[in-house]
Design a protein around this nucleic acid. Structure first.
Length: 271
DNA sequence: ATCCGAACCTGACGGC
DNA sequence: TGCCGTCAGGTTCGGA
């Protein structure tokens, strides 16, 4: 489900409701997500006030005085704000309870994570992450310098969170299409100019997707339970076999790359 | 250091 | 209807 725009949409939906609020309790119905939810997390969060909420890559970080609650939505996770009486459905694994509402984590595939750290700046899953794609330090020059001597396909490269965070399968395909770059080109073979174009495309795609509230394919919902509308703007993802919206004649082609479906235009994105 | 595939899990869908 | 294989928005980890 969620790439950076969906996580950002969720975060921005939650912030106005949760900052400064006190957590009155936490109910864990299913501890086994990607990793086990730590057994002491209910104690750590009980009666804690939410000081700050932010995002690092696709990780949602919720700061309280004694540390940080870390939430990752995996492939199928979502967070919604509900009334206390809202009926439970099958994969509602965790509730965080506030005075007037419940924050509910739902995740059918359980690839997501709910973790705790006393010190987010020294947490293994966070400290080796690459840079944020929407920050100014993510430049064509940065990307070009990192591609040197790297032989992986450029699509895998921009999806590598040690290089740049937040770019998943949908937006990687869309950004490469927008930049006119074939997904299979080895990273080291990109010219500096192509790196500039790719970075520009990534920023543009992500910003536009955030503006539309993310991409809803089957079931993505923001924290108010509303879908995102960026799926209507997708130019290659999910369109294999259809004609290219840019050149109008080539048929979009699908290949498997690093176990992920990858769609591109063989005419607009030359190898 | 780099790269690749396996692993985690459920549900939806198409074919027989 | 039911069973089987395939696929799905992520990413860490282990081994080559």
């Amino acid at each position: 489900m969620p790439e950076l725009p969906e996580v950002e949409t969720t975060l921005q939906g939650l912030i106005p409701h949760l900052i400064g609020k006190r957590i009155d309790g936490m109910i864990v119905r299913q501890r086994q997500l990607r990793w086990l939810i730590p057994y002491d997390i209910e104690n750590k969060l009980n009666q804690a006030y939410i000081l700050k909420m932010h995002r690092r890559g696709k990780y949602l970080l919720i700061d309280v005085e004694s540390g940080t609650l870390i939430i990752h939505l995996g492939m199928s996770g979502s967070l919604r704000l509900l009334s206390h009486s809202s009926p439970l459905t099958k994969h509602d694994h965790v509730d965080i309870i506030f005075a007037t509402m419940t924050l509910r984590y739902t995740d059918p595939r359980r690839f997501g994570a709910i973790l705790w750290t006393d010190d987010a700046s020294d947490y293994s899953l966070l400290k080796n992450l690459g840079i944020e794609p929407l920050e100014n330090i993510f430049t064509g020059h940065y990307l070009f310098s990192r591609t040197q001597h790297r032989h992986v396909p450029i699509k895998s490269f921009i999806m590598d969170s040690k290089i740049v965070v937040g770019i998943g399968n949908i937006y990687a395909a869309e950004a490469l299409f927008l930049a006119g770059i074939h997904p299979l080109i080895p990273a080291s073979r990109l010219t500096e100019d192509q790196c500039y174009r790719l970075v520009k495309a990534i920023k543009q795609i992500l910003r536009r997707a955030i503006k539309k509230g993310g991409t809803t394919l089957k079931d993505f919902m923001n924290s108010d339970g509303k879908p995102g509308y960026f799926s209507q703007q997708l130019k290659v993802y999910g369109r294999a076999g259809l004609s290219c919206v840019q050149c109008g004649f080539a048929v979009l082609q699908a290949i498997k790359l690093a176990q992920r479906n990858t769609v591109f235009c063989p005419a607009c994105q030359l190898l």
